[in-house]
Every structure is written in C-alpha cells, then in structure tokens.
Simulated scan of single mutants.
Amino acid sequence: MAKILKIYPENPQEHLIQEVIKTLKNGGLIIYPSDTVYAMGCNIFDIKAMEKLAQVKGVKLEKAHFSIICNNLSHLSEFTKPIDTACFRLLKHYLPGPFTFILNANKTLPLAYKGQKTIGIRVPDHPIPQLIVSKLGHPIASTSIKDDDDVLEYTTDPELIAEKYKNIVDLVIDSGYGDNKASTIVDLTEEVPKVIRNEKGDFKD
C-alpha cells in the first residue's frame, strides 16, 4: 500500500522530502507533482526500479524512453553529447519550464538507458521535483501518468491517482491539483529544433 505524503510547494518539509529520498534509494516508485501533470519516477541508477517502472507502463525496459528529471542544466554532460552555445542558450531560456528537450545521448548513460541514441531532459519549474533531485544528488527517471478516460487524458486529482496506484507505487506526493497538460516536447538532435508534441509549453525559436 502506497504511503501518501502531503507536501506543498510553498513549504516543503525537510523530513518529508527525506522520506521521498529514502524511498528512491531503496528502489521504490514514487508519484510526484510537476509544473505540468503528475508523474511517476524512480532512481535512474536502480535497474530493478527502472524495470518496475517499465512494467507499469507495459513496455520492456529496452523499449522504454523515460525522461530524465534534473534540477538544473549541470547534469547535461552526464547524459548528452556536447552541445553548442546556441543550443545551451535555448535550453537556458526555456528551462526550468514545461518542456522536454530531446538531445543526443552520450555513451555514459545509466545502465537502464544503454543503447539509446537520444534522451529526453526535463527541468520542471516546480520546487518539489527540484528539491528531490537536489537532495538525492542525481536526476530521476520519469514518465507522465495518463488516464484511461477517453476525454480526460491526465488525472489532476492526486487522491484519485493515489487510489488507482496504491498497490503499484510505494509513495504518492499529494501537492494539490495538478495540470491536465503535459510538457511540450522539442527535438534538438538536428540543426533545426522540431516540436514533437505541442502541449503546455509555448515554444518559439
């Protein structure tokens, strides 16, 4: 049964954040808020946790393409090939924000990402995921929580999310209602940026 923690952006309590960190370090799955929709995440360096995350999504881990959640751009060199000044300025302009940027991956990716040519990078404009990554000491893997409903693609109520996933994840962070629009996805692997999914973020290059 998943534990539910009420953590609000205005005043995230240290001991509650530490409980989230402990869960991630122990290989647990968490549901957390972001500047877009609620998402599910885990420790990118825990292969078993990554396999569980893939299982929840109904895909094999080698076929999964989980975003990497960072708290700033300092982690880029760990996961991506070198980027030019123009690309870095673009990222700095839009992040933190409701965007996922696809970049060319390097060869030092965590084990669960091995073989991937590209990687999705997110820096949410939300204090809770930023704090989690900061306290954990490295980024987390993440995937948006989609709804089974044909009309509402994303559930915004954390209580309903917790009820649905209570036997699947280890911890749910209730931070109030989330958004019902996912991040805008922009491919930066070629010379000209390409919007793959146009959602919450307004990308104008």
Rank of each mutant, 00 (worst) to 15 (best):
F101C: 03
K114T: 15
M50C: 15
A39D: 03
Q13F: 06
I173E: 01
I4W: 03
D179K: 08
F66A: 13
N104C: 10
Q55W: 05
K107A: 11
K135W: 07
E62I: 11
I102R: 01
D46I: 09
S34A: 07
N72Q: 05
I185C: 01
G28C: 07
F79Q: 09
V123T: 10
N26I: 05
G28D: 09
I119N: 13
A112T: 10
E153T: 12
P33L: 01
E19G: 04
E163A: 14
L53V: 08
I140M: 10
T156I: 12
G178I: 15
L111A: 15
R122Y: 01
L61E: 13
P158N: 09
I121Y: 01
D148V: 13
T36W: 02
F101T: 12
S175C: 09
L152C: 11
P82H: 11
G176W: 00
I31P: 11
L91H: 10
F79N: 07
K48S: 15
V37S: 02
H138Y: 09
G120F: 04
Q116R: 14
A2W: 03
K117T: 15
K135I: 11
K181D: 04
I44C: 12
K60F: 06
I47D: 13
I30W: 06
A49R: 05
H15F: 12
K92Q: 11
H65C: 11
K81T: 08
A49K: 05
D35C: 08
N104Y: 01
V151Q: 12
P98Q: 08
A54L: 07
I121R: 06
P33W: 01
L90Q: 04
K166Q: 14
I69N: 08
I132C: 05
D46Y: 02
P110T: 13
Y32A: 00
D150C: 09
K166D: 14
E78Y: 06
I7D: 01
D148H: 04
K166I: 12
D205H: 11
T118N: 13
T108N: 12
H126C: 06
L29D: 14
G28W: 02
